[in-house]
Design a binder for these strands. Structure first.
Lengths: 205, 205
DNA sequence: CCTACCGATCGGTAGG
DNA sequence: CCTACCGATCGGTAGG
């Protein structure tokens, strides 16, 4: 036991490491993620952890890729089948808000936290993060464009402006919930998103 | 030379350390702030740096206090003299946006970054940060209430909802500018804040 | 505010 | 994927 493993076992181990890495990084940041801590929490050796990835940076990139995949699975995939334009955009707001309210990681939305953590740095993690977020923004902006063409949103709507606003409002739910314990954070977030899209908010809660 | 210093010299040194600490922490986080790095950048010994504060946590708290003071000086104080309510609220949006566009620290707004960095942790830095942000939210919400009483905002306006939205939109300018290099981040932010306050945006840019 | 030092932990490697 | 190990750096202290 404890020697080299089969390819299938190695894949399992890799997945186990990444799950835990995402949990840790969601709370303590991608930089606060350390190989030694991961090893002890997983009852593995440091060499066993890092051997799967080669370097901490590769581990960070793989963790980011997992988080992006989970985000997509929880926010985009559930609404993908809906008609493009405003209906799907509103559904995204809802799945996004649900995601922010019950995040898959203990520290909340990983992407939002990492965006603020790495915005001032340089390197591959910064670059990859920028790519991931830009892709999501483009998805949102394209949806806004469709809604404008369908006449569901005003002709003077700026898709990039709307995409920026939605993202900022979604991200804001994170510190609101976790820093201040605001239980209404998700509902604030959703109502503000609705307002951006010109959907009237129901009176009171 | 290099022995004990007078009280006045010690104060100067303390201020110099904190300035640099805020610069470093704005880019690399309050946790990424290390005593050794600070010492070498300031051409001091580690003992000289930490001796002023006693522990890293105290240094983090002092850095946060400085950042909060600078924020207040750049965002609130310039508009404090204006009439309370919507006029002052709009002026806050402008000074806030200016602040986000030309931040006093290389890594952008310190408070926003720290909020996302520490929202999932516990301890004195988390608690103090929560206090600082809550104080600011209360200032905003009070201003909204004044505007509602003056009839400048609709009677069904929820002050906490508005405060949340403004803060999220201001914070969002940070990763937009630094992660994606969006030069329009500040203007997106301002226009979205205006929309929240029911102020019509000027057509196009 | 300095020198000199402490134990702990960092990322990572050699070799099996 | 483990043991055993590397140099570098971490936060912090003693003592002047």
């Amino acid at each position: 036991m404890a020697g080299r493993r089969s390819a299938a076992e190695a894949r399992d181990t890799r997945a186990k490491i990444l799950r835990r890495a995402a949990d840790v990084a969601s709370a303590d940041g991608l930089e606060g993620l350390t190989i030694g801590r991961l090893a002890s929490e997983l009852d593995m050796s440091k060499a066993g952890v890092i051997g799967q990835f080669g370097s901490k940076e590769e581990l960070q990139l793989a963790t980011l890729a997992l988080a992006a995949e989970i985000f997509r699975g929880r926010v985009w995939e559930p609404v993908e089948h809906l008609p493009a334009g405003l209906p799907r955009l509103l559904a995204v707001c809802e799945s996004w808000t649900r995601y922010a309210k019950k995040p898959p990681f203990p520290g909340g939305c990983f992407i939002a936290a990492a965006s603020f953590e790495f915005d001032g740095r340089s390197g591959r993690v910064h670059d990859e993060l920028a790519k991931v977020v830009k892709r999501w923004r483009k998805t949102l902006a394209a949806e806004v464009e469709t809604a404008v063409r369908a006449g569901e949103l005003g002709a003077d709507t700026d898709p990039d402006q709307v995409a920026f606003s939605l993202e900022a409002l979604a991200a804001g739910a994170n510190p609101a919930r976790q820093l201040h314990g605001d239980t209404s954070a998700a509902s604030w977030s959703l109502r503000a998103m609705h307002a951006v899209l010109g959907v009237p908010a129901p009176k009171a809660a």
